[in-house]
Design a protein around this nucleic acid. Structure first.
Lengths: 135, 135
DNA sequence: TTTTTCATGTCAGAAAACCTAACATAAGTT
DNA sequence: AACTTATGTTAGGTTTTCTGACATGAAAAA
């Protein structure tokens, strides 16, 4: 899952290829960078190198431009998206925390059942819930 | 399935990037081209542009070189592989033909059953086999 | 309506990246 | 020893990209 993100953020493409891929002019691409909508990497010799993520972003910019939205608007759209994915991350974290909390509870139940049910092989009704603790 | 192959054969990378990705020198890459092991595209201005397939091939060349195989050997390896995938294609085609032949047979059976079983809604035992003819 | 602003076009001069061709060389082959 | 192979190195030329400056049409503001 993370390897893919690395690949997508690897600076691989010179501006000429990006122009073809996005059908934007060099002037436009540089202008969007000037307005901090993208931040392509640079070679030692100062040439811009773009990643797949940069290209996605440029295509998004192009779409927003086509819909009549100006630089400020696009900047805001990206800020909101950023914030949105950030909160989604937090929600995921919270969900994970909730799950881990109930894992603890399940552990308690498991211990208690093992003490009571003792030596029965027949498993308790909660086996399905417990299974994730094993293997 | 074919869209992926298009993407993999799209000339996107200048030689500088390919050098980094493959850890080959420009001299080596040009030499391998000279020996027809790769055939990168060219820009209008005659710059080489490499596809993902080209890069795969270069990595393969590098591996074979590391194993002490010379240009002629590598050329032969690729020829064999080419031939191999070609026969695989033919096998696939043959398999498809076999399948289509039995499709014809199934059609015959279908016709015959429709004539005999006539107006029964209850479907014949072969319905599962027939289903691929509809929708 | 006139003036500003915005997004982009265009041009110039400089630097980076790449090209081909030629010669050099270490290691392996004849 | 002479040749071949794979690669290094250098030179001179062309293409691509860079920044900065000025130009412009359309939209927004005054």
């Amino acid at each position: 899952m993370a390897g893919n993100e690395i690949r997508r953020s690897m600076p691989l493409f010179p501006i000429g290829i990006v122009m073809q891929l996005t059908e934007l002019t060099a002037r436009q691409i540089r202008y969007y960078e000037e307005h901090k909508l993208i931040s392509p990497a640079r070679t030692e010799g100062n040439r811009r190198m773009f990643s797949l993520n940069d290209i996605d972003r440029l295509l998004e910019i192009k779409d927003l431009i086509d819909r009549g939205i100006n630089m400020a608007g696009i900047k805001e759209v990206f800020a909101v998206k950023e914030n949105q994915t950030a909160t989604a991350e937090m929600e995921k974290q919270a969900e994970k925390a909730r799950r881990e909390l109930s894992d603890d509870e399940l552990r308690k139940i498991l211990r208690s059942e093992l003490q009571h049910a003792g030596r029965f092989n027949r498993s308790s009704l909660r086996q399905g819930d417990m299974s994730r603790f094993f293997q």
